[in-house]
Write a protein that binds this DNA or RNA. Structure first.
Lengths: 153, 153
DNA sequence: TATTGTTATACTCTATAACTATA
DNA sequence: TATAGTTATAGAGTATAACAATA
């Protein structure tokens, strides 16, 4: 169990203040901290962060080819193999055959996958709540908005 | 040379909208994009992002032991070896012997290191300007403030 | 015995290359 | 010839374990 106060580093007090204002370390530490909390939150569900993302995509966009999933997640198609393996092992998605192309799959979320996704959403939301605790609702919104605008959406 | 419009992914249009609102991917992509720009900006100076950070720490906090540097950068002491190697090769820091502990170094920035640091600051600032282009000055400030508050400073 | 710097090693993550079966 | 999925392999990045020198 990780203490609430040690989200960002093992001992934040040791870190140099020389990097405090720099955007790179700020983004990196924030991402790492969020990732650690997400990994811990998803672990009881035997779901990796990448598996969680892939499940959300299949649930939203499926049925779709495995290669399409990889593109939409921004990873290589070889990386998608292990991710879909993970989801299939959990019974969250099915590798059904594509209707007209026998080389491809038609990935589909299962009812169990939908339940798992809902549980994962909740677990991550709770972890995110702790992550965002230092910010007011307004600040959280502006943070999200800024990050979204940085990627042009 | 990387096109200005392809900062975030090779083809952002391919990415699923299912992950758009999620904080994990937002932070991850922002960090990756910033990192890519920083790497490109520092490359002409033969400086890695990690070397850049270490140089800034030595310049601000030095002289200090190699292990202290590692702690203040948040990396293992074995990782610091290669980073200091890089800075020493560039003539940016000197591995002087510690006055009272002959096991340890007293890392110090050189005049050349200070000039390199200044050049690196400027190069990264220019890259950051492109990174932050979609945001107004006010939004940039609130983004920085939010990220800083997330790490408790 | 503990600590500093170092090296060798292993582990994680991800991509590239090569294979197969289809198209 | 090209593409979908797979496997084997390699590379980057970083940590753990073990070592010599020193405390």
């Amino acid at each position: 169990m990780i203490s609430e106060t040690i989200i960002f580093t093992a001992m934040a007090g040791e870190l140099s203040s020389a990097l405090d204002g720099r955007l790179g370390p700020l983004l990196g530490r924030a991402h790492d901290a969020h990732r650690r909390l997400s990994v811990a939150a998803l672990e009881p569900l035997e779901l990796s962060p990448k598996g969680y993302g892939a499940l959300a995509i299949v649930a939203a966009d499926g049925p779709l080819k495995q290669q399409r999933l990889a593109q939409r997640q921004g990873v290589d198609r070889t990386t998608a193999v292990a991710v879909v393996d993970e989801l299939e092992r959990l019974g969250a998605v099915k590798r059904q055959r594509h209707a007209t192309d026998r080389r491809a799959y038609a990935l589909e979320v299962t009812p169990r996958g939908r339940r798992l996704l809902a549980a994962a959403e909740q677990a991550v939301a709770e972890a995110e709540e702790r992550f965002l605790a230092p910010l007011t609702p307004g600040e959280r919104q502006t943070l999200r908005a800024a990050l979204r605008r940085l990627q042009g959406s």
